[in-house]
Design a binder for these strands. Structure first.
Lengths: 252, 252
DNA sequence: CCAAATTTTGTGAATTTTTCACAATTAAAG
DNA sequence: CTTTAATTGTGAAAAATTCACAAAATTTGG
């Protein structure tokens, strides 16, 4: 009981990297903060976490890479993204092959994916690192020039390689969405890649947190009706939801 | 003055691993605790330290403690590898393009490379993550199936893509070396990749720490005379060194 | 099955650490 | 030599952490 909780905390911390005591309290409403504190103390003594003011952070997380620009971006809308990622993870079946993009939401998805036998293609460096830790996941990363801002790769040449791969499902995310302009992102090559994704996958699942709604980025890579499932958070506007469901797109 | 102090704090912290504010106060009696706090905050934002209750700890220190399969391997012969990496880093000129492999020594090399204008190709995920942090380094990662044990990619298909790239210099490392069997590694596809490297690069620099000498791995990818420069540590046997220099190979 | 012993947990006060706001000082620029 | 900006110091306010002890839960032994 105690040990179970502690292990759960450790796991959670490995996934999220860092948690405040308040966040932990939300996850474990049945015990007091003091108990959680004591658990953290124990985990610290085991060398698995580091207690910091306000909460704790995972040692594994620190070991990965230090203060890169990427982690900064990670902080925004974290909770929504994790929830979306959890929903998406549940949609992945064993013994299938799928594509995941390189965005931040995708990275959370990578964390949530269970260690099952699947073949995953990705153009995200951070996603790849995360998935490489799962023994049963067969992983292929798309090569190409690395974009420093989001640690994902894209290049026309890599497209050729991409053309020769097969997968059933693609789970991608967009930087912006409006009904008129569809799903868009900030780079031409990325848009091309995602367009190819749309062509090659039997089904296209889109992860979109509601903060992206109403925004427009330069390159549209999919329209509203191009997707099969939309995975979003609770703040998704009802009228928009209707627009999707009317086109037989599942919104969840 | 301010920056100097901050650097000094960072250095101290890297050495000692962890320091309380009181200890820091002893080291810097001329400034107030508040100033030290502000310095620590700055260092934390730079991602170099982690502030904990009572003081701060060095990120490097945390990173040392191993846990993962990959990180475990990293821990072995660390000092030699870092020295070799430092030597290799000095050989890289601005405005050139080069290939770096995906091994552990290569990862240390990535850390040591200054933030200069170069184009780097690599098949190492960890190497890529490290290099992605340098603003001026143009980075391309070779795609392919990811090998979980060493976080590097290799696949016949990626080879095709590789063929279309150009670089002047390749800095690679081997898992094993004997004069008879040359430089060898543990995987067929990796050997193929490194062979291609040998063909495409104008010059081939080999990083080899002395612990690899006398070992044999299944796949040879280069012979003694194939390389141009051998970068090794101080324990490299003198007789072997002669063998290389007699073939006009620089040993350093 | 019950009671004693042990472990785990919760609570509020005490302590410590950290933050905050503003003044004082120092360094830099014109 | 002013003026401006940056850095630093101070004490109070806020927050987080620890502490001590009682309550609750779990385990143990009869």
């Amino acid at each position: 009981m105690k040990r179970e909780r502690i292990e759960e905390i450790a796991e959670l911390l490995d996934k999220r990297g860092k948690l405040t005591l308040e966040q932990l309290d939300d996850y474990f409403p049945r015990v007091s903060q003091m108990t959680l504190r004591r658990d953290l103390l124990l985990l610290e003594q085991e060398g698995r976490i580091i207690r910091v003011r306000g909460g704790a952070m995972s040692v594994k997380e620190v070991q990965k890479v230090s203060g890169e620009p990427y982690t900064k971006k990670t902080a925004l809308h974290t909770d929504e993204k994790i929830k979306i990622a959890q929903k998406a993870a549940r949609l992945i079946d064993e013994n299938t092959s799928l594509f995941i993009d390189g965005g931040t939401t995708a990275m959370y998805l990578a964390k949530e994916i269970p260690d099952i036998n699947v073949h995953i293609f990705t153009n995200g460096l951070a996603v790849a690192i995360e998935l490489a830790q799962k023994k049963n996941v067969n992983l292929t990363i798309l090569g190409g020039q690395v974009m420093k801002d989001n640690l994902s790769t894209a290049s026309p040449v890599a497209q050729v390689y991409f053309e020769n791969t097969n997968f059933e499902l693609a789970i991608i995310s967009a930087s912006a969405f409006t009904p008129q302009n569809g799903f868009s992102c900030g780079s031409q090559v990325e848009a091309d890649l995602l367009k190819t994704t749309r062509r090659k996958a039997k089904a296209l699942y889109m992860m979109l947190d509601s903060s992206k709604i109403g925004k427009i980025m330069p390159y549209t890579f999919a329209r509203l009706e191009d997707i099969d499932v939309l995975i979003t958070d609770d703040n998704f506007p009802a009228d928009l939801k209707d627009m999707f469901t009317q086109k037989n797109i599942v919104v969840m």
